[in-house]
Design a protein around this nucleic acid. Sequence first.
DNA 1: CGCGTAGTTGACACTATTCAATGTCTGTGG
DNA 2: CCACAGACATTGAATAGTGTCAACTACGCG
Lengths: 225, 225
Amino acid sequence: MQTEAAVSLEISRHPTSVLREQARSQGPFGMIGTPMRFGRNTEIYGEDEAAEYLYQVVSGAVRTYKILEDGRRQIAAFYLPGDIFGFEASDTHISSAEAICETQVMVVKRNALIVRASHERDLARQLWDATALELRRFQEHLMLLISSAEERVIGFLLDMARRAKKNAAIELPMSRQDIADYLGLTIETVSRTFTQLEQSGVIALPTSRRVELRNRAMLNRLTTA
Amino acid sequence: MQTEAAVSLEISRHPTSVLREQARSQGPFGMIGTPMRFGRNTEIYGEDEAAEYLYQVVSGAVRTYKILEDGRRQIAAFYLPGDIFGFEASDTHISSAEAICETQVMVVKRNALIVRASHERDLARQLWDATALELRRFQEHLMLLISSAEERVIGFLLDMARRAKKNAAIELPMSRQDIADYLGLTIETVSRTFTQLEQSGVIALPTSRRVELRNRAMLNRLTTA
DNA sequence: CGCGTAGTTGACACTATTCAATGTCTGTGG
DNA sequence: CCACAGACATTGAATAGTGTCAACTACGCG
């Protein structure tokens, strides 16, 4: 995968304008990035690989994760359209990244961006902002992990709803197992919690991947109950 | 506290050379920083305050934390001598910071550092490195929080031992409550886990704050058991 | 010496996990 | 168009691990 990226970075300097427009409106990548596609469950980069590229999600979704020695998987973050990932402020990735579903990303050579950033004040600022956001997400994630199962699930849903910019209904790209591995719960507990929330009327589940937030006030109350 | 810092930054440009020497050997702060002292349990900065300064611990220890709406406290990180904190890649602090015990820090104006970094390649690099380390610590912290109580405590102890550079014995500056709030456990569970580890012979507890790692091999095995 | 804080220990309740079974959706081939 | 396989999701019962509440102990400081 990494190899493909390298190739297309060299060859294709003028990707389809549709992609460029989409990305440009959302971040610093549109002007210099190269589009790539990744299929469901395919690796984008591996842990401990050199962090040669930065990525911005155009469509689809990405998970970053680590596998522990005993086989458990901890998902560090989900990235949705517009999000930048692969940028860990160091030259080695601290997680692996996979496409959750069919995903389009804009890819940019890290070095190129850093060089540009050294004389484009605006770009440097955007890189720091992306890093600050990353730190903030990690911290929010930490807060989730010390709460009860119900609070974790609600926190996750509210975060997804906010980031999807759909206030009432969200289409989850990730499986229950992904959610469980993100929240540090088992798939069964996640499932049970979804059902409880549905039964108490705060969410609706037309399909297992589609969540409608019915009672925002109660959801917000439950986050700290 | 913030005010004091501002004052001393303006007034005292030539702090005691002892402090400068100590800090210089450990990071980028020695050449431009100003020393400050904080007493036990005093605030260094508050959440959502403007991040005007960066700090480097000279002696003592610092905790950063957030208080949740329901009153629980999550400690985000502990900082030991040599560590840089208060730098969250954004212009607002995402946590509060307090001295755990009598603590000396070197303080530097964020702006000054950023200006210098723009033409001192080395300094810029150090800032990114500090940020990368911060991200790495957050991630390791995440991994801890999905484990069992025993694994969390062991992970914490191994981290402390590594950072204190003492391979066998560590003097913990923080209380059991601090450890509990860092690990997302109760003080009782932390205490019980310490006792268990002592009884199984992998650690010794000459006093409640002093921990000796007796069986490193077994400790490492237990981290993922 | 006595007080207050910090730490430990015990009994019990409760939450999430484990293991197992059942249910649902999607895509494929008959 | 329907039947089936395989992956994904839900549900149930029993268990293990933490949390809660309360009592007790150890230590440092005035």
